[in-house]
Nucleic acid binder design. Structure first.
Lengths: 188, 188
DNA sequence: TCTACCATGTAATCTGTTACATGATTGC
DNA sequence: GCAATCATGTAACAGATTACATGGTAGA
């Protein structure tokens, strides 16, 4: 399970507690990885059970802050992480895009409706690109790897936007199958 | 659930049975979608139960071919599909790439090991690019949408490869943190 | 006081994958 | 006869999402 190694990798940087792990992943890998509390806390428990991490410190609720559990990576965890790091990835890249699936079937629908949906997608990715460009600056002084990752994110985003815009103009220029079918949408 | 609409969309083209649906998706959307029998057959049952498709014909094993169940979309299925088609996508794009996750942590590992893994990724995507370029030709005479989708696949693949090659040269030029730590890998 | 955010956790549900079981047909 | 492919299906498992429950702190 990849999430365990993502956690292990973060704990390799510094000790953290569950909540921080989530915000950290969201801030730094949000464009390629997401995670829920429903995964984090059980994962932390398992990692601890396997001896890969251990709870270093527990802030009890009566001593100031909220009750946190600070975890740190163990020697065993570090060696397991290194083993994982030097092993080629087990699973191929997975892309799941509900928009592109819909797009594939747009020939069955109305061109104007299709264009509206494409416009929404453009809006969405315009906003995302802005965020990614800001993040890229933040990461410039990080390791080469993190910086390169951020640059990939920006490039992919730009490519996608360019494609969306081209798609829109191309389907406008496509001769539609001359609305012969009196498509009564007998809804409801 | 998107898979149900993918099936509904294919049945909107023509009647099919479960096995064909899988091979069809593999051939046409393999680069952006995958599906298992473990999903198809239960999905078909549910779609039938909901009245969105119906079994048109069943070839019994004693009348020639193997026992097939030919499904076709119903009026209700068609209107539900149209409703889905004109609704903006509910979920955002999901990318899950074990390679990129590993990449993010390469600073903890050995550069030579990292380069080996990158090379493997390049090999993988070189092969994929060839396949995609062949498919693109096959799809030139399909609808604009399918053609555009194929072109996006090729462009994304090319961008990714370019990035991988650049990443390799950039990490080579990066001054490594002067191998002071006598990194004994106490394996076993 | 109330809201926003920090923090941990569980349960239910949904999705997806893998493995298994069965059996027919086609071509060698 | 045997292997490959066509064809349908189920069970077990893995992974991810959502909703819920609890309670603390900080600031308006």
């Amino acid at each position: 399970m990849s999430i365990k190694y993502a956690i292990l990798g973060l704990l390799n940087y510094s000790d953290m507690h569950g909540y921080r792990i989530k915000t950290h992943i969201e801030n730094n890998f949000g464009h390629m990885w997401s995670i829920n509390f429903g995964q984090i806390y059980p994962s932390l428990k398992e990692l601890e059970k396997d001896g890969l991490i251990k709870m270093r410190e527990k802030t009890p609720s009566d001593s100031g802050g909220p009750h946190k559990k600070l975890y740190s990576i163990t020697k065993k965890g570090r060696s397991d992480f290194t083993r994982w790091l030097t092993t080629p990835p087990d699973k191929p890249m997975l892309i799941r895009d509900p928009f592109l699936l819909k797009f594939a079937f747009f020939s069955f629908g109305d061109i104007e409706e299709a264009k509206k949906i494409i416009d929404k997608q453009i809006e969405l990715f315009d906003a995302q690109l802005k965020r990614r460009k800001m993040n890229r600056k933040r990461w410039e002084r990080q390791t080469v790897y993190v910086r390169l990752l951020a640059e990939l994110g920006v490039s992919q985003n730009e490519l996608y936007l360019k494609w969306l815009r081209r798609a829109k103009t191309e389907i406008e220029q496509t001769p539609r199958p001359s609305d012969t079918s009196s498509n009564k949408q007998g809804g409801k």
